[in-house]
């Protein structure tokens, strides 16, 4: 069976095409201002990689903040549901999922089939999303891909106010004036983010194995800080930003874990 999953996130649109539970095509495109156009682009790219035409897709599920803007879909499914399904597929021992995207951090607990037991979302008063690291990278004048490895070179822990992004940003200004090293500042940023995420996750509790998905999972600095806060090692699957779209495609195929 060939299915498609489209995850229309706040910043990026991800598409996954599955054939008999194997990924045969995927793509990621910046959503931008013309979301429908970008979504169509993403779909076309994925189809091209899979080497098939649209009519071969038997079922499509869309998810994410912009789920209704997909160029076509048979059903929508919640992003937390898709994340869990995708995570359990890639890693059957998954019982908790943390998804840190561009604009939102989410925590989930699921069972062995990938069904959601409880979930929580980072709301107001939170510096727990990818947009924060982007802003910080700009402030530190490093490339976004560099900020993670840079933070691993830190020599000191500097506490940053983790409650309010705005307060945190002004604390960076203070650190710059106090000539704190870039590496130490980078670590402070990741610690602050990890603290926000951990705070949220504690609300629903977490069970091993904990899987980290979403774009920010690629940030080794963030993973390091998060592991310290949670006192365990999170599992980061390959291509973590595609787990939501994968889950949507699995849902379209009627896949369930635990078999």
């Amino acid at each position: 069976m060939i299915t498609m999953g489209i995850d229309l996130g706040a910043k990026n649109i991800k598409v996954v095409i599955l054939k008999d539970n194997k990924i045969i095509g995927k793509s990621i495109v910046l959503a931008g201002f013309e979301v429908e156009k970008s979504a169509q682009q993403a779909v076309d790219k994925a189809l091209k990689e899979a080497g098939i035409t649209k009519d071969k897709i038997e079922k499509t599920v869309s998810t994410g903040a912009g789920d209704k803007l997909a160029p076509f879909y048979d059903e929508t499914k919640s992003i937390v549901g898709c994340d869990s399904l995708g995570a359990v597929f890639l890693h059957p021992a998954t019982r908790s999922v943390i998804d840190v995207g561009a604009e939102e951090g989410r925590g989930m607990r699921c069972d062995e089939t990938g069904k959601i037991i409880d979930f929580e979302v980072n709301e107001k008063c939170a510096a727990g999303a990818g947009a924060f690291t982007e802003a910080m990278s700009r402030a530190l004048e490093v490339k976004i891909e560099e900020i993670g490895p840079l933070s691993l070179k830190a020599t000191e822990d500097i506490p940053m106010n983790a409650q309010c992004t705005v307060f945190a940003e002004s604390e960076v200004v203070t650190m710059v004036h106090n000539k704190v090293s870039k590496a130490n500042m980078a670590k402070a940023v990741h610690d602050a983010m990890a603290s926000r995420i951990t705070s949220m996750v504690r609300k629903i509790g977490f069970d091993k194995d904990v899987v980290l998905v979403g774009g920010v999972a690629n940030n080794v600095g963030f993973v390091y800080s998060l592991n310290k806060d949670l006192e365990l090692e999170v599992v980061v699957p390959k291509d973590p930003e595609f787990v939501g779209a994968l889950g949507a495609a699995l849902a379209a195929a009627g896949w369930k874990g635990g078999k």
Binding site: A65, K77, S78
Partner: peptide, 14 residues
């Protein structure tokens, strides 16, 4: 409103 509706969707799923 949009975020809350998304949450409700997910909750109804559970």
């Amino acid at each position: 409103e949009a975020r809350t509706k998304a949450k409700i969707n997910a909750f109804m799923e559970t």
